[in-house]
C-alpha cells in the first residue's frame, strides 16, 4: 500500500512500462504508414532514359515520367532566338531561357500546366509555344507562362545527358 499513497507519487516501473509500450506501438504503426510510400517497383521507374536521335528539328515528343508527360522538343533557331530575346520584365515568372535548358536545341519540361494540372497542347497559343485549353494559359517557346491564370513556368525536371543523344530524366 505504500506505493499507493493517493496516486501522487509516480512510480518508475509504471512509467517505464508505459514508455516501452508506447515505443512498441509506434514501431508497430510505422510499417502500416510506410507501405503507402512509393514502392520499390515504382521507385525503379523514377528515372527514364530517352533516345533523342530520332527527334528532328522542330519536332516534339512526349514521354511518360513518374506518371506525368514530359515534353522534349528539338527547338528551331527561331524559337530559341525568340525565347532569348524576350526581356525578363515581361515575364510573370522571370527566368532566362538559358536557365531552362541544358544543351541546345533541347527543351525538356514537365507537360503539366501549373494552374490546375491539365496537359497543354504544343505549337499553339499567342506566343508560339504551348497553350492550355482548360483555362487558357499561354506559354512561350521556352515554356514560360505569358498569359492566363497559371502562376509559374512549366517546370524543368532534373535530367542529364548520358551521351550526345541520350538523356536520363530523374
Amino acid at each position: 500500500m505504500a506505493d499507493d499513497d493517493g496516486g501522487s507519487r509516480r512510480d518508475f516501473l509504471y512509467i517505464a512500462t508505459g514508455a516501452v509500450a508506447g515505443v512498441g506501438t509506434l514501431a508497430a504503426v510505422w510499417p502500416l504508414i510506410d507501405q503507402m510510400n512509393p514502392s520499390k517497383d515504382v521507385l525503379a521507374l523514377a528515372t527514364t532514359e530517352v533516345d533523342l536521335s530520332s527527334i528532328e528539328e522542330g519536332q516534339s515528343v512526349t514521354v511518360m515520367w513518374r506518371g506525368k508527360p514530359v515534353f522534349i522538343r528539338a527547338r528551331t533557331p527561331q524559337e530559341i532566338d525568340e525565347a532569348r530575346a524576350t526581356p525578363l520584365d515581361q515575364l510573370k515568372d522571370p527566368q532566362s531561357d538559358q536557365d531552362r535548358v541544358v544543351k541546345d536545341p533541347w527543351l525538356v519540361m514537365v507537360g503539366v500546366c501549373t494552374h490546375l494540372g491539365c496537359v497543354p497542347v504544343g505549337d499553339d497559343g499567342d506566343y508560339d509555344g504551348w497553350y492550355c485549353p482548360c483555362h487558357g494559359s499561354h506559354y512561350d517557346t521556352s515554356g514560360r507562362i505569358r498569359k492566363g491564370p497559371a502562376p509559374e513556368n512549366l517546370p524543368i525536371p532534373e535530367y542529364v545527358f548520358l551521351d550526345d543523344t541520350t538523356i536520363r530524366i530523374g
Binding site: D3, D11, L13, A21
Partner: peptide, 20 residues
C-alpha cells in the same frame, strides 16, 4: 528481444498491482 523486455515490464507491473 524488445517484446521480451516489454512483457517482462508488463509482468512486473502486474505483480505490483496484484500484490494486495
Amino acid at each position: 528481444l524488445f517484446l521480451i523486455v516489454m512483457t517482462g515490464l508488463f509482468y512486473a507491473s502486474k505483480r505490483k498491482i496484484w500484490r494486495d
